[in-house]
């Protein structure tokens, strides 16, 4: 029994901004289902009251004095971008925007 349907994989692909062919959808549904099947061993555990760990250490905010330091060179950064204009990253039209 698969834990994951084709529709769910298609939905997740859309959320992740990936386009899948019908063939890919079939393969990924099967492969991801197998991994989730393996992960089922976690779901059978009773972990009531166990706190979650998202990070190996307790993280605290790290602050520094608000002084100007060395930063990246804007020209070098924009030079490495696919498209730039007037000192900014340039992108194609955003849907629905009046031009």
């Amino acid at each position: 029994m698969s834990r994951l349907s084709r529709d769910e994989v298609a939905h997740v692909a859309h959320l992740a901004r990936l386009r899948l062919s019908d063939e890919e959808l079939t393969t990924f549904t099967e492969q991801l289902g197998q991994v989730l099947e393996h992960a089922a061993d976690l779901q059978s555990l009773d972990l009531t009251g166990v706190p979650p760990t998202a990070h190996p250490f307790e993280l605290r905010n790290v602050v520094r004095p608000d002084v100007v330091g060395e930063s990246l060179d804007p020209a070098e950064v924009l030079d490495a971008a696919p498209d730039a204009e007037d000192g900014r990253f340039a992108v194609p039209r955003i849907l629905g925007e009046d031009l």
């Binding site: 992960a39 779901q43 555990l45 972990l47 166990v50 706190p51 979650p52 760990t53």
Partner: peptide
């Protein structure tokens, strides 16, 4: 659930 297992 995975984060709780991480604690364990």
């Amino acid at each position: 659930q995975a984060l709780k297992v991480r604690t364990r």
